[in-house]
Every structure is written in C-alpha cells, then in structure tokens.
Design a protein around this nucleic acid. Structure first.
Lengths: 340, 340
DNA sequence: GAAACCTGAGCGTGATATGAA
DNA sequence: GTTCATATCACGCTCAGGTTT
C-alpha cells in the first residue's frame, strides 16, 4: 500500500528520502530512477522498492532545472477547433517517440495568443509549435529570433529566419475542389471564404485561379464567411435567396460547411440534389456517416509529424533543407457532391 | 530592439545577467520581477530596463522549485469533447483571478488517463481537476490520498477522503426533459443512453423514474448510444425503422443529439414535426442557430468556477462543507421540441 | 524605525570527479 | 581496467536574515 506522500501538510518525497530508506546516496537513486548505468542490479531493485514504498515521483521541474535541455515542445492551439484537437493528438503521438514532452497552452475567448505564448516561454520550452497562429508576422519573426518556431497551417514568408512553416497547399486544395465540381458539370460555383483566418487567402486565390482557368471567371462569387458553423449558416441563408442560385458551394472549412448543410436542409434545398457542397480539412466532423461531406483533406497526422520533426531537427542541429514544408491536399469525395 | 537571448547555442538570460547589467544583486532583481516591495522606484526602473534590454524572462520552473507553493492546478480533459473545451475555458477564467495557473494534460486515443495524470503529478501540480474521469473509483481514491482531487461531471461516492465532486444533477436533468416532453403531450418517449460514460447511469435512472411517475412505464425504451454523433446516428436509424416510432427522443448529450437530428433529416423524419429531440449539456453545438437544439443545460461556467473553488479551498485549508457539489440543470427550450 | 539593498542558503535534481572493491 | 557507489557542485530562483542609510 502506497503511503500518503503529499497529504495535507506533508511534503512530497524526494531523492533524499528514497536514498535514506534504501541506505544509499541520492546520486545513486538518481541513476536508478533514470535507468542510467552505474548501479548494481541488487541495489537497483532495493532502490526501486524503496521508491515505491514511499510513493516517490521524480520532480520534472527540478530535473529540467538541472539538465540544460528541457526536451519540451510548447504547443499553442485553439480550444474550440476540432482541427486543432486532431493536430494535437498527432503531435503527442509524434513527440513521445522522439523523446520530447508536450506542453499545451490554449487560446480561448478570454485568453489570447500573447498570453498563451508567454506561459510556454516561461515553462522553458525549447521550441514552439503554433497551430494556425493569427499573430502578426512581425511578432512571429521576433519569437523565431529567440527559439525555433514552427507555424502549422498558416502561410508565411519562408525567409523569416528561425521560422519553420508546415502547411497544406491550400490553393491546390481549392483547385481540386473546383476541378471536381466542374468535372461533375457545375459552372456556377460559389466560395464561402474564411476572411482573415490562416489559409483563407490561399484558398480564395486557388478558387479564383481555378475558375478562371476553366473559363468561369464570370461565375466567380465569393461570400464573406469564417471558421464556424454560424458563419457558414449565415452565408448559406444569403445563397438560398440568391437568383440565380449557384449549383455548388465550396466552404472555407468543414465547420463552415456543416453550417451550410444544415441551413440548406432546413430551408428545403436538397444536397446534393439542388446544390453540391464541399468542405475543407477532413476533420472528424466530415467523416461522420451522417454528415458524409465531400471535402479537401488535410493530412493531419503528416502535418503533426512534420511539425514535430522540424522542431526536433532544429533543436538537434540537423541540417534541414528549406524553411517551408507544403503538404499536398487530397480531395475526399463523399455524398455532398453530384452533377447539377 | 530586444536581443537574441536564446539563439542557437546562446544561453537564456537569468536573474544574474540582469543583476550584472543593472549593477544590483540577484535578490533585488527577483524582488523587482515579482513586483514585491523592497526596491526603490529608480532602481526598479533601472532593473526593468536592463531586463528588457537583454530579453529576460523569469523561469517558471526554477521559481516553482524554490517556492514551496507551486500555485499550479492540473487539468485533465478529453481533446475531442466540446463540453470539456468549454469547461477548460471556464477553468482558465476562474483560476487566474484566484492566483493559480493551469497545466493542461489531454486524454486522446493513444494517451490514456493514466499517462495524463502522471505528467500532471510530475509537473508538481498542487491539485488535480479531472473532467469526466473514467478511471476506476479506487484509482481516484488513491490519487485523492496524495493531493486534492476534484472530479467534474462524474458521480462518485462523496465519502472518499480527499476527493471533491462537482457535477450536475443528471437525474434531475433527465426528469426536466421528460416533464417538458410530457407537458407537450408526448407519451412514447425514448432515451438514447451514454453507456458507461460519466453521468449516463444517472440520466438513465432519471429518465426511468420520470417516466414511471407519469405512468408511462410501459413506454420506457432505452437504446444503446454513446458520446458521439455516430452513436446518436446509429440509434436514430434504429428508431426510424421502429414501429410504433416514439414521438420524442432524449439523447445522452448534444453530440449524440446532433447525430440523431441529421439522421432524421436525411431520412425524411421531420423534427420537431414528426419527432421531438432533446439533448444534454447546452454546449456550443446546441446554441448554434442552425441546430437550435432543445437541451438540458449544464451550467458550465458555474461548474468550472466551483471546481477551481474547491481545489483552491482545499489548498488554502479553508473549511469546506461536504465533498460534493451538485448543480441544478436548467432545461433550455429551443426549436427541436413541439407537441406530437 | 523604516526603507533600500545585499549575503547566503537551499529547493530537488543531474553531471563530474573521485574513490573503493 | 571495470564496476559500483559517493561527495560535491551547479541549475535559476526565492526567502530569511543581515547591513547600511
């Protein structure tokens, strides 16, 4: 039965406590706890036993203080974005095998990016992984001057020293969506954009370019949207009333697209019968059987893996090629698109 | 222009560096950085200036190591649960005014609660706030023997020493939902449950009790469900085919309910025309205009506030009444319920 | 006596140097 | 020479206690 090491008033056990109980020096206990070599197997067992008995746990902070390396990657993410949740999951999975720990810092309504980053820096993270950062490029550049910074899912000038960029080719994704719709026979294709959100500009541009290349420049129609279901719903209400109504819509992301879907369903506009809808991200949402959304897939595990990889490479001083990694998107055709 | 304090190879500046530059002792710099009293205003300004010049940041870990208090609350949450995201947001908001910092640790597909808690303990958190923990009660009891533990949204024996419970009266919530539906004229009311999820047993029981009290014991119908949209969609497919089909459904939570909604919409079952649907949580999801879900609201800010309050009270040695705080739910009537 | 400042110790570790078998 | 174990210091910071105005 384990003791009550840090009960009310009680101190939590330290190396010294274990050492005293096992009758050895603290240094030896340290060796045993780290699994380092330099301890006999009998002693090792005795020390482990003592540690177990008094409920000893290594103090991560003291450990970090002592070792020059902290092996800590700071991750800034948006609490309300499923896309970020998926990325975080992938980052955990990629970091642990590489021998790094993750420190999370959330961005929320009353907690801005500035605050989120400050706590990560105070926690002695060695590198920062920022998911869809909205901070000005100048601020990111300043940060990148202090430690390796990886920006995920936002395009930035790759020339900023110290700043790594991992992102999906958003313009290419938009192109794939348009190509797919055109191949189905659509001509009047609208785009609900993401405003100033990361990636929005590229998707908008990709849409424009693709439309023009198909000779559909005259049908370009861009509606103000955003990242949320509500943004999509609002734009869809506008579209429902429009005459002529487009026969297809490409939404900024999956959340936006589901807002569009539900609004159409409620107002009696059939999807994909009357109108086709395409999302972006291929997050959990889109894959759900009852949503069944055709969407431009971002390779989330790959993005996560690369983000960790770049951070680690920078920390270990490996030679890495460029400051930017652009991942190809892949259109996932499901049930919300059909010929007009 | 700030320097490059921790560039590749460069050490990060410390108190000593600031002290040297300002021509004072490290202790005085410490005083200034903490905003404690004991420094003249001229010196104070000089020190701050020096710190700014070399880009100094306090090292949170060293600080924690030295001070006996860490002022850290560890929060375990599920990455994929919007309900948890909302709670975390509330916890951030409640903790900072109380002078405490938050450390997040996520539970994900490949990262269990065990791992999540271990990192929180290693980080020297003074108390743990666990959102919807699924761990066995015995494990929680063991933890609670080591430090104050607050379990949010899960019912547990309040007699476990050291364990605080903050939860919604789930049975009462289920009762409110049933009462509302009965008042509308429904009699054939089904429940899609949450299986072994926290709160599911109470909601199931509340549903049963309320149905019996209305003399509708013969109409009790419980379908296996779960926490996700897919669980709801699967159950809804079963319901669509059922004869007689119930005229109302109470889902385990909002995610589950949206799965139900979409399935019904797709299969031509009108909501609330043909069937009424009630969710649980009143998370972001339900409030969206295009979902407009009638749901049993959990008072998320209140739950968050109380959770932090209990943890802090325990840490500061305040006398607190019982080991359990049960918050009343409040039915939020929106557009998915109507007379049969 | 108070305000402004400094000295020295120590928080719990990990690394190095050193010694004993 | 190798294996096992220890003593000692440093990490960056805070705090108790001292000294000087």
């Amino acid at each position: 039965m384990p003791g009550n090491p840090a009960g009310p008033g009680g101190k939590r056990p330290t190396l010294a406590d274990v050492a005293a109980r096992a009758g050895v020096s603290t240094a030896l206990v340290s060796i045993v706890m780290r699994g380092a070599k330099g301890a006999g197997s009998a002693t090792r067992e005795r020390v482990l036993q003592a540690a177990r008995e008094i409920g000893y746990r290594p103090d991560a902070r003291a450990r970090l203080l002592r070792s020059h390396r902290s092996q800590l990657l700071g991750v800034q993410f948006g609490l309300q974005h499923p896309f970020h949740s998926d990325l975080v999951e992938g980052i955990y999975a990629a970091a642990e095998p590489a021998g790094y720990q993750i420190v999370l810092s959330a961005v929320a309504a009353r907690r801005g990016e500035q605050r989120a980053v400050e706590t990560l820096l105070a926690d002695r993270c060695e590198a920062l992984i920022l998911l869809g950062p909205q901070a000005p490029a100048a601020r990111l550049a300043e940060l990148a001057g202090q430690l390796p910074v990886v920006s995920v899912a936002r395009r930035l000038r790759p020339s900023i020293p110290g700043l790594e960029v991992v992102r999906t080719a958003d313009d290419e994704g938009a192109r794939q969506a348009v190509d797919h719709l055109v191949a189905l026979g659509h001509r009047d294709i609208a785009h609900i954009d993401g405003g100033r959100a990361p990636g929005a500009a590229d998707r908008r541009r990709g849409y424009r370019t693709a439309m023009n290349r198909h000779g559909l420049g005259g049908h370009i129609r861009i509606l103000a949207g955003g990242l949320t279901e509500e943004d999509g719903a609002a734009a869809a209400r506008t579209l429902s009333a429009a005459r002529p109504r487009p026969t297809a819509v490409m939404a900024f992301n999956d959340r936006c697209a589901t807002g569009v879907l539900d609004t159409f369903l409620r107002s009696g506009v059939a999807v994909p019968g009357d109108i086709s809808v395409v999302g972006f991200d291929d997050s959990h949402l889109a894959r759900l059987a009852h949503i069944d959304l055709t969407t431009v897939g971002q390779d989330i595990p790959r993005l996560a893996h690369l983000a960790v990889g770049r951070a680690v490479a920078r920390l270990e001083g490996d030679e890495i090629p460029a400051g930017e990694q652009v991942i190809a998107p892949r259109l996932v055709i499901r049930g919300t698109t059909a010929p007009p």
